[in-house]
């Protein structure tokens, strides 16, 4: 049953996996002396076709742009193939995260009276939708909801978070995170609805994502004016740390407390190698995500691999960004701090 409907796309994704940079690629890339060398090396990989026509003075941002293009290319292919019903919705859901970012970007841009075209350039290509350009014209949340978002899937999330509040009164970051929380919840609901293996693997990864967000929000809101209740409101309603861990996180006042909360949760094993650096926590989470994602490829007949593919691509972009920035800034000894090899 699965193969008749979604077999082709699954095979395509599995084919794309071969395009990831491998551990030996990363070790080779670490030997590069200049960004130009990185570019040269990457032309022999899947990025070759995107990189070869670029002009010579290479900047790290160019490499990042090309990697992003790669993701967009792959996903536009998925769109092109026109997946059968449950999968097509699933694929759309993958993009909602970017959509939220884009909407928030447009709204903040509009509040600061910036040019709409200029803002559109900044938007993430995966999160584009038809009516996004008209976002620049809105002035309050209700209008935003009524005119623009009503056709988009995001509208439900808006309705869930903010009913009558004025746009200016809501902190844009809280808005973003509330939207994201609603999105995660909805995605979780969808994957559970799909049932079977998909539900199983997606539950695992989405719980992880929810927990990571909770931890990140906690770490980033330490020492800010964000109140304890507000903080807890931003946490997702599911996840391995729900509800006890989240309650503890909401009470945290410094980094050590966060660490101890994590150690008491299901994530005790991932924190073992981490020290007290904030950077390391992020890296540990990324590593765990990569691990979980690549293990998804071990199983067949589920949609999780699309999610995993996207996340791994994101990580690869991060890797290359980190690598090329390190080399461009002559900080090669820091490379190991950021690069997580995927396979």
């Amino acid at each position: 049953m699965f193969n008749t409907k979604d077999g082709f796309l699954e095979a395509t994704v599995r084919g794309c996996v071969g395009g990831f940079l491998r551990t030996e690629d990363y070790s080779n890339l670490q030997q590069c002396e200049t960004v130009e060398d990185i570019k040269l090396y990457l032309t022999s990989t899947d990025y070759g076709s995107l990189l070869q026509n670029e002009a010579s003075p290479t900047h790290p941002s160019l490499i990042v742009r090309c990697c992003l293009k790669k993701i967009v290319q792959d996903f536009s292919f998925f769109d092109l193939v026109k997946a059968a019903e449950p999968l097509s919705t699933f694929l759309q859901y993958l993009k909602y995260g970017y959509m939220i970012d884009n909407i928030v970007l447009m709204v903040t841009g509009a509040m600061h009276e910036r040019e709409v075209t200029e803002l559109l350039d900044k938007c993430h290509p995966l999160g584009m939708f038809d009516s996004i350009a008209s976002l620049g014209a809105v002035s309050n949340l209700r209008e935003l909801h009524r005119i623009v978002l009503v056709d988009t899937p995001i509208s439900a999330y808006f309705g869930e978070c903010f009913r009558d509040e004025n746009l200016d009164e809501v902190n844009i970051e809280i808005l973003r995170n509330s939207l994201y929380k609603a999105y995660l919840k909805d995605f979780f609901r969808l994957s559970q609805m799909l049932g079977g293996l998909t539900a199983e693997v997606m539950k695992e990864i989405l719980c992880f994502e929810a927990d990571r967000r909770a931890v990140n929000i906690t770490i980033n809101s330490i020492g800010t004016e964000l109140s304890r209740d507000d903080r807890q409101k931003l946490f997702s309603d599911f996840g391995h740390m729900h509800p006890e861990g989240q309650r503890d996180l909401a009470l945290c006042r410094d980094f050590e407390q966060v660490v101890s909360v994590i150690v008491n949760s299901t994530y005790q094993n991932i924190l073992q190698k981490s020290t007290s650096e904030e950077m390391n926590i992020d890296k540990v989470f990324y590593e765990t995500e990569v691990m979980k994602c690549s293990s998804m490829f071990a199983q067949q007949f589920h949609y999780g691999i699309f999610y995993a593919y996207l996340k791994l691509r994101e990580q690869e972009v991060r890797n290359l960004m980190w690598l090329s920035e390190c080399i461009a800034q002559d900080q090669k000894y820091r490379i190991v701090d950021g690069v997580i090899s995927i396979f």
Partner: peptide, 26 residues
């Protein structure tokens, strides 16, 4: 300058490239 631009790289690594616009808009 070196540490500053590296701190920016770290921020980009964790926050993604789009974080630039968020900062700019604020």
């Amino acid at each position: 300058m070196k540490s500053a631009s590296f701190a920016w790289t770290e921020a980009k690594y964790v926050g993604g490239d789009g974080i630039k616009h968020t900062v700019l808009d604020s």
